[in-house]
């Protein structure tokens, strides 16, 4: 069994506690218009790793994880795209005592999602839009399974964070924040964060010869989200 990986980022600072290594697995079932990793869609053109190879790479920084309360973050793409490998990989990491976080859009059947919860210490799950129609429009998929999985996550023993990518003209209105807040209340979501839209992916679209939906749209910054976050009650 081999995994297609499109990036391994060491000393990753934004995806969980402590010093982490983030592994980006290729393949995704969503097509978000703002995606900053369009290079992940193609499964063929990436380095492949056997379980042993990837484990060796992930363990290289173990000394730093141990000191800092860090670990490995599995990201993508969508990790469920290579779920068989992911499960084996998580077991192997667990055996070595490595803290595991995952980043997922959570657009998978609930049985599958629940399996993941048994294997990891932390889940970042995105909720790109509270409204199903809007969600389909910008990502190509329904948010139905995602909402269901968020409920499972909230009620599990696994620590989590629900993330909202705040995208201009999509979900950045203050009324959107109010709707998110209401939904979170209903689902029992207590831990969440907002991620301001950025343009880091722009160059990749150019290189891949793809059209970029957000060409020329200005990036948002923390200071742009003050009111939005206040409504949500984000700390």
């Amino acid at each position: 069994m081999k995994a297609a990986v499109f990036n391994i980022q060491k000393f990753s600072l934004h995806d969980g506690s402590g010093i982490r290594t983030t592994i980006f697995f290729a393949g995704c079932n969503l097509r978000c218009r703002w995606c900053c990793n369009p290079d992940c869609f193609n499964m063929e053109e990436h380095d492949t790793y056997s379980l042993e190879e990837l484990l060796a790479e992930a363990l290289k920084d173990k000394v730093f994880y141990d000191k800092s309360g860090g670990g490995v973050t599995l990201s993508g793409g969508e990790i469920f795209f290579q779920f068989d490998f992911i499960q084996e990989f998580c077991r192997a990491l667990r055996e070595k005592g490595v803290n595991i976080a995952v980043e997922t859009a959570g657009c998978v059947p609930n049985e599958k999602f629940v399996k993941l919860l048994e294997l990891v210490d932390f889940v970042f799950i995105d909720l790109k839009h509270y409204d199903d129609k809007k969600h389909r429009e910008a990502t190509g998929v329904s948010n139905e399974s995602i909402l269901k999985n968020i409920v499972s996550l909230v009620n599990s023993n696994v620590d989590y964070c629900v993330r909202i990518p705040v995208i201009p003209e999509f979900n950045d209105a203050l009324s959107d924040a109010e709707n998110y807040a209401a939904l979170f209340k209903k689902l029992g979501v207590k831990k969440f964060e907002t991620l301001p839209f950025h343009q880091f992916g722009e160059k990749k679209y150019q290189n891949l010869g793809l059209q970029y939906f957000y060409q020329g749209v200005k990036a948002l910054h923390d200071e742009d989200l003050t009111a939005y976050r206040k409504i949500l009650g984000e700390k």
Partner: peptide, 18 residues
């Protein structure tokens, strides 16, 4: 501030462990 802490932990690992 959390990145300053991570830098500290990075440096400490380099010296203490490595």
């Amino acid at each position: 501030p959390e990145n300053c802490q991570k830098l500290s932990l990075l440096i400490r690992t380099f010296f203490d462990d490595l």
